[in-house]
Simulated scan of single mutants.
Amino acid sequence: MSAGNSGRGTPDEPDDPFAYLYRPEGDAPPPQQTLRQPSYNQVRPVGERTFGGQQGYRQQQAPARPDARYAAPETQVGGRPPNGGGPHDRRRAPGPDQRRNGLLIGAIAVVLAVVLGVGAAILFSGGEENQGANDGESSAPTGNADDEQDGDDPTDPPADEETEAPDLPVADLTRLQFGNGAALESTFQNARSDTGAYIAVQGRPNATITWTFDFEGEPGQYYLYTGYSTITDGQAMGFSVNGTPRTDPVDMQDYSTASDAFDDSWVRTFNLVELVQGSNTVTLTCDRPCDVAIDQLWISDHEES
């Protein structure tokens, strides 16, 4: 209720302050006024209307029709909701182009799956065949004769694989030939032969030791090693290789000066010799002072320390 209003009914003064402007001339009585409509500031319950100044009845108001000027954009024809469409835009039914793209993608995926499946089947079946071949199953050769000639022979050893060198000969004292009193003995201790025996030639002029052996290596120059024991300097034996006498004897000096006994004076010496592939013969002869005992003979391809 606003100021100047006493509530329901009409105010004491007329509502029209400019009524004097259209009064009849000569102060004629004004025409009878009709009942006035309620004032704009008269309080009425919502939905209550008056007709002709009489209290009317309440009518159920019909729902207000939306005004196109104030309607939400999504309710107008061709309108779009704000912010790019929101979640409702994403849930809209796909158009014809989208359905065609989906079908095309699905078809491509099916073709790829079939191709991958066939490739996997071929790969695994090929692996099983190879496994069967490795297990001993025979298979037909592939490729032509020219290809096989150009390739390496599978039976040949790899080019970078070195062939193992044959074992070089080592004398078995029990198989040697002795002459002019040379013989196997075991009086002295610590001999390095397999049996602990040695060949005694001391005090036996022209005693001979002959070693015949097969050589499977490359022909050429090798080291002939002689193991011996002596307690006197200046001892030596002459020798020959394959029937050819050598001018350099087998020098047998007393290199073990720590002892004066044969038991503790075992040493070695070497001479360079020419060997041929196959059978070779080395002969040692006591043709000079040779107060020695020999316990080893062997061939080496290098100078041993």
Rank of each mutant, 00 (worst) to 15 (best):
T210M: 00
D254N: 12
D254Q: 11
Y255K: 11
F213R: 12
P219K: 11
F270E: 15
T232H: 07
S256A: 05
M252R: 04
V273H: 15
E216S: 08
S240K: 07
S256T: 05
M252T: 04
Q277S: 15
P249H: 06
D233A: 15
T230N: 05
L275T: 14
G220H: 03
R246G: 06
D214E: 15
V273K: 14
F213E: 05
T212W: 00
R246A: 14
A236D: 14
I231A: 07
V241G: 08
T232A: 09
A261V: 08
D254F: 02
F239R: 01
T269E: 09
Q221D: 10
Y223I: 14
V267I: 12
S256N: 05
V273S: 14
Y225V: 15
W266Q: 03
W266K: 04
P249E: 13
M252Y: 02
F239H: 09
A236S: 13
G238L: 00
L275F: 10
F270I: 07
G220V: 08
W266M: 01
W211R: 14
S240N: 12
P245H: 03
Q235C: 13
G234S: 13
V276A: 04
A258D: 02
T257W: 04
Q221F: 00
Q277T: 14
D264S: 06
I231V: 11
P249F: 01
T257Y: 01
Y228G: 14
I231Y: 05
E218P: 01
D248V: 13
A236H: 06
S265G: 06
G234R: 06
S265D: 10
T230Q: 04
Q277F: 00
Y255C: 04
Y225S: 10
E216H: 10
T247H: 03
S229I: 04
P219Q: 10
F215V: 01
Y255M: 07
V241Y: 00
Y222K: 11
R268F: 13
V273T: 08
V273N: 15
T244G: 02
D264W: 07
F215I: 05
S259Y: 00
W211N: 04
